[in-house]
Nucleic acid binder design. Structure first.
Lengths: 142, 142
DNA sequence: CAATAGTTTAGAATTATTATAATGTAGATT
DNA sequence: AATCTACATTATAATAATTCTAAACTATTG
């Protein structure tokens, strides 16, 4: 599996030293078909359970934040007191299932382009994101 | 100032006992021209500094959450690890200034109605909210 | 292969929030 | 108005997520 070579290069490209830990984390995050969402906790679990590897919690935090800063990951705010990250770094919207606390990506076609009419002087728009909260049909709504 | 009477009644209407503390918090939150955004921390500071009153942190949390459940307040997710609340409980969108960490309300007219084409079976849409992140024009973007 | 600058680590510290259990109080009942 | 009871408030402890610290380690440079 020369797959890791890609990660080493990718890391170097953006100025991150390709350490054992960072490569391991890349594998967990990017050696897969589809992009996905996770919390730091999820990631730590995946590393220890699926890869049978132990990376210090602090390192996982550091690495995830380094990745985020470099554009390898995107942070998503839904739930206060929990940080979700997304390996899909392109601009896109989300559904959030309030029953299961599951995040679901929207396709481009799911939501029309958002037109912002307001302009804040001296400020530029960095992103426009929609969060659609859904819940069970028959349940008392939050 | 018979203003508090309104709060007492308002609280009663939704089945919350009008306690000294809840009325005090109502005063801080609603005796003002415009709606505004705050964190629990902000609120505690306002109570102790502006009103020279001491309400236990636990009570502030309980009360804010009680208000939220009853529709007096709306929670807004922007920043993980900080809960923002909004005294404007109507459905509306926000700008978030990434430089100052300030939340700014959007008017109805600022953003067109969002059309959601996706449908998740068995789930109903609870809310659709747009967050527009802005930052200084001349600054390296996040 | 030594120097050094950045990295990892365990554990402590911090911050936001929730739980606990004792005390207090609003509103109903007498 | 005194009493009762359910709900509220409080200080404090507990928990959870995250960040800090300082020592040990390692990738890269010269």
């Amino acid at each position: 599996m020369p797959k890791n070579c890609n990660f080493i290069e990718k890391l170097r490209e953006v100025g991150l030293r390709p350490t054992k830990q960072r490569i391991k984390i890349c594998e967990v995050l990017y050696n897969r078909e589809k992009t996905f969402h996770f919390t730091i906790n999820d990631l730590v679990k995946m590393i220890s359970e699926k890869m049978n590897e132990k990376i210090s919690l602090a390192t996982v935090y550091n690495t995830v934040h380094a990745f985020e800063k470099k554009g390898y990951l995107k942070e998503i705010s839904i739930d206060s007191h929990k940080s979700y990250f997304d390996t899909n770094t392109s601009a896109h919207h989300h559904f959030f299932d309030e029953d299961t606390h599951e995040l679901i990506d929207c396709d481009e076609s799911d939501i029309d382009k958002i037109n912002i009419r307001k302009n804040i002087t001296g400020k530029k728009i960095n992103s426009v994101e929609v969060l659609v909260r859904v819940a069970s049909d028959n349940q008392t709504q939050k």
